[in-house]
Design a protein around this nucleic acid. Structure first.
Lengths: 206, 206, 206, 206
DNA sequence: CGTTAATCGAGACGGTACGTCCTGTCTTCGG
DNA sequence: CCGAAGACAGGACGTACCGTCTCGATTAACG
């Protein structure tokens, strides 16, 4: 109905520009920045009101609603905008690379991103659009992890019959539940990456 | 100030009953049922309004606020009410017991509980009270897992230098992220417990 | 749909009171007072916002909308509340009584009522409900005028074939257009009542 | 600041035309027509939005604001555009001429003009500019009435001590309040002009 | 005949108010 | 004292307009 989020970028492949005054890129930035500042400043995600975002960004409410249909869409976009760069690995030993990646996973949960992501979990479950967007943002990170594992199989550092999917899950899952939900309060996250990787490599059998 | 959650059950050890009309147990049940029905029926946790709960339960708003201080407390209690029994293990092989427990973890995420729990994650992070309550509910389940692992170390089925905390995290984390967030959409959860347990036992090193 | 303006006074003839907390009489007064104060304070009738009324009255917006469906209804009620008492006549000479009544018509257009009434004319024309209410408020005043004229006919001070309706219109119309619209800017309203009554009594024919 | 209402017509006496593209006369007409259509179509004057006018006229909002500073100015111009011709009198008897003029007053309140004029009363009271403009539009009509009355005094048809100002008010006021506000719902406006003129000529005294 | 400049339509901009909904508290009555 | 019912002050929602602005395109007269 309302042409929400039909930014000029989306029609960049067409020659013709939309009629009327084009949307302000400054407004886009100001709104996203306001969302992130407010959340980082301690505002709960459900206490985050569009009105406060508009006020903080120095923007009319309509300017927000012209771009995003609701709060969730806005927050998802805001979060997507602060995903740091995909972590790079040294490529020497598989163990070192895995530790790098698992540590990066922990670190990405600090700062602004870490405040916001857990709040999106209910939305991820319920809204397929949000879920898809989340998977899209995660894909390159997961791919790096897969490549390290595949390299390990090739170089003989890892078992030849390794199921990559399960291995990715085994390396990501524990660190995520620990950082996101503080799963085991007695477990420090500081040296956790090394311990996890070593145990995963060795297994726990006798 | 307001005697929130001072239900008759909490003062059952006292001889003296409170004066006046006792609280209706039917109201308690109706309210909890209304919350669970609404959430299972697709209502977002932040879209869940006390007014709709009161209407669905056929109860006045004050009757709810007399028992719970706010929405979160109510939801936590509602969720706590549907925790199934702590899973029992056969006690024969460690591997079989672990599979039983990890599968139980998956199954508990189906039905109404599975709909509700992920919605609490933001609350768990923010509200220490909710977090404590959640840990309390999880403790017996985790304890069963620990005991199985400890038994495995004693019987020699598991390595003697096993770090129980890490092992618990490695067994719980992957299953949780997969069931709660649908972490890897290409990964079926059906035989996942066996595969996870086997990989954890064996490790992925060459 | 919403039970607007179903105040307790309207069901006073019924024995049974409405369930729930009764509406606050203090809120009623505060709202009406706020409207009148704002208008008297120079606020245009179309610039008068429900939000400003609520703020001035120290009342939630919902408390206003619970009683009045829209701004016009509210203003009409506010105006109706400040209609002064129906003017009393001495009853000696018809001329003196007519002057009293026509002067009262002028005076009622001063102060707060005079600021508001003209603003309602568009509404009076368009909204039958508002029109009816206006006629109701005017009826007793018009009745007094009719009675003076009828008495004049009986006592022989006025012509026996006098058309009362036309006479009322002739006495009211000129004063109203002059006070409401400032019809003739060169015409003072000070001694106007006497001049009008005398000319009406005498006619302008040779 | 903004050159509002500096239409080409206003500078017609200057030799030099303004540089750039001249204003579109079609836009002027379309805007005025849109205003009148909307008001005649039942839109309240305060519900009349510039946006709806622009949409109906197929014109940009700026094209309206370039010509009129605000809504009131626009409406006043729109109303002024539909004033009919000043009524002409036969010049035979004063009574017949007065009836003609008073009837004309009634007729001018039918059609679009009659729908619009009452809506301006609040504006007339508040805005001196609007009031002046209104008086200007009324002046020629009032002048015709004055001339008939003065002629009546000269020819002896009216009393020599007639106060023309009061007489004009007495002839205009009743008809206006009756047609504009439907002052007395039991009074038909059909033969009203004759009855009013006759009563005014005769007076109501014994 | 190309420049210049004000116009056009369209529509985004920062705001304000709308009327609705919900929050957590309160105030009434009857059980 | 508890129950339902519902009013209370407050505040966010998403919509509609306000009056201003910025676009690319159009349209004359001037040079």
């Amino acid at each position: 109905m309302t042409p929400v989020n039909t930014s000029t970028a989306d029609v960049a492949d067409q020659e013709r520009r939309a009629p009327g005054r084009p949307r302000s890129a400054r407004a886009d930035e100001a709104i996203i920045e306001a969302v992130l500042d407010l959340i980082a400043g301690g505002t709960t995600i459900e206490a985050l009101s569009i009105e406060s975002v508009a006020a903080k960004a120095g923007v009319g409410k309509a300017t927000i609603y012209r771009r995003w249909a609701n709060k969730e869409q806005l927050i998802v976009d805001a979060v997507a905008s602060l995903k740091g760069p995909v972590p790079q690995v040294a490529g020497e030993s598989v163990r070192a690379d895995l530790i790098t990646l698992v540590s990066a996973m922990r670190n990405s949960q600090h700062g602004r991103a870490g405040q916001v992501m857990p709040c999106l979990i209910p939305e991820i479950r319920r809204n397929p659009q949000v879920y898809e967007r989340y998977q899209l943002a995660m894909a390159p990170r997961r791919q790096v992890l897969r490549e390290v594992l595949e390299r390990g199989v090739r170089t003989g550092e890892l078992r030849v019959d390794l199921d990559i999917d399960i291995a990715v899950l085994m390396l990501s899952g524990p660190m995520l539940v620990q950082t996101i939900m503080n799963w085991d309060p007695n477990l420090a996250t500081d040296g956790l990456a090394e311990r996890l990787v070593d145990w995963v490599l060795a297994g726990i059998g006798a």
